[in-house]
């Protein structure tokens, strides 16, 4: 919902704190995801993610969530799906070129990032989005990646 999404970006710092607590939990649950099977966990976890983030951020389930790098304003709501910053067509009042009644997603993002502790993440170049990940859970992706990294480190140490 549009008004909830604006509210969420205004409270970017709060959601940053929440996510900082939430991410390690998701990662720690790796044994659970593994025993259930990441494939089978995909459906319920994805559903939960879609419901909660959909309500708060108008999440489009791109599968590669970068909310922490975009001031808690989902860039996939930009009509040009820009993931690296605003286009040059932003209106003088800060609204979108394509949808004049909507505030530019990146104006929100910039304001949100200024409230966050890790706001400078907005300066990181985002690579082209992987469209094959669309609809999948970013949370499980994060958990899997973290455990993969851990394993690699472990292998590296044992060598």
């Amino acid at each position: 919902m549009y008004s909830v999404r604006l509210w969420a970006a205004r409270h970017a710092r709060f959601f940053e704190v929440i996510y900082r607590i939430f991410e390690p939990v998701i990662v720690k649950l790796h044994p659970l995801w593994k025993s259930v099977g990441y494939q089978r966990a995909e459906k319920p976890v994805g559903m939960l993610e879609k419901l909660s983030k959909g309500l708060l951020f108008d999440c489009k389930m791109c599968g590669q969530c970068i909310l922490s790098s975009t001031g808690m304003s989902c860039p996939m709501n930009c009509p040009k799906t820009m993931r690296n910053g605003p286009c040059g067509g932003v209106r003088a009042n800060g609204n979108c070129e394509v949808k004049p009644e909507m505030k530019c997603v990146w104006v929100e993002a910039w304001e949100g990032s200024q409230k966050m502790k890790g706001g400078e993440q907005i300066q990181v170049v985002q690579l082209p989005v992987d469209h094959s990940q669309k609809g999948s859970s970013s949370w499980l992706r994060v958990a899997r990646r973290a455990s993969d990294l851990k394993q690699q480190e472990y292998k590296g140490d044992s060598k």
Partner: peptide
Amino acid sequence: PVFDLDSIS
């Protein structure tokens, strides 16, 4: 509209 990439990517 395609917008598969953006100017920076």
